Simulated scan of single mutants.
Amino acid sequence: AHELADTGAFDVIYGAGCHCAQPVENYNGTWIIYGLGNAVTVTSYILGNEVNNQGVTARVQFAGKKGVAGSWRVNRIDWVPTANVRQGQYQWCPISDDHPDGACWNETEDANQRQRIWNVIYSMGADQNVVREWNITAEQAGSSGK
């Protein structure tokens, strides 16, 4: 990712592959989302191996660079911590703090896994003013005029 960023050709690099949530980093002006984790692949739930049942859904917002016509920059990265288990079935499930679809495992386990993903996302110093946990419920309420 650093080699790609060093070319200067990218504003954001959006990675995938590892079955675990990975950090977000701003490296020399390029945002790198290292890995999205596991969305729906069936894996065993073995104590201590929870990372294989976690993921991240990310949305990247771009805005023009002030005073530079036709240019773009990453303005914001919203992310949702996710699980690939919903009440014992392998299915995508958001484990965000606002619980938009209810508990995935249970409230305690969801909170523990959400915190673990949060720690990983920010482990390489991502700016929390740019990289923010996505509150789906608040966004939906705002768009419907509630």
Rank of each mutant, 00 (worst) to 15 (best):
R116W: 11
A141G: 08
Q128K: 08
D110V: 03
L47Q: 14
W72T: 12
T57Y: 07
V40I: 12
V51K: 09
T43H: 15
W118V: 06
Y34I: 02
T108Q: 14
N26Q: 13
S143E: 14
T41A: 12
N112A: 09
E109C: 06
I136H: 04
V68K: 14
A9M: 11
R59T: 10
P94W: 01
N129W: 02
E3A: 15
Q54A: 01
I136E: 04
A111K: 04
N106Y: 03
C93I: 03
K65F: 01
G145K: 06
V68D: 13
G17I: 00
V12W: 11
W118H: 10
F62W: 04
V40P: 08
Q140H: 07
V40A: 12
A126N: 00
Q91P: 11
S44C: 10
K65V: 11
W79I: 01
N75H: 14
K66D: 15
Q89H: 09
R73E: 10
Q87L: 10
G145A: 06
D6T: 05
M124W: 06
G15N: 11
A39L: 13
K66I: 14
D101A: 11
D11R: 09
F62S: 02
N119Q: 12
S144G: 05
P94K: 00
N38K: 04
N38D: 06
K65Y: 02
Q54W: 05
I46V: 13
K146A: 14
D6V: 02
G67L: 07
S44V: 05
P23T: 09
V12I: 12
V51H: 09
A111V: 01
V131A: 00
T43C: 07
K146H: 12
I46P: 08
Y14K: 05
G102V: 06
K146V: 15
R116T: 13
R116E: 11
R59S: 10
R116Y: 12
S44R: 15
N28P: 07
R116S: 13
G88K: 07
C18H: 14
I46W: 08
I13S: 06
N49M: 11
D127W: 00
W79F: 14
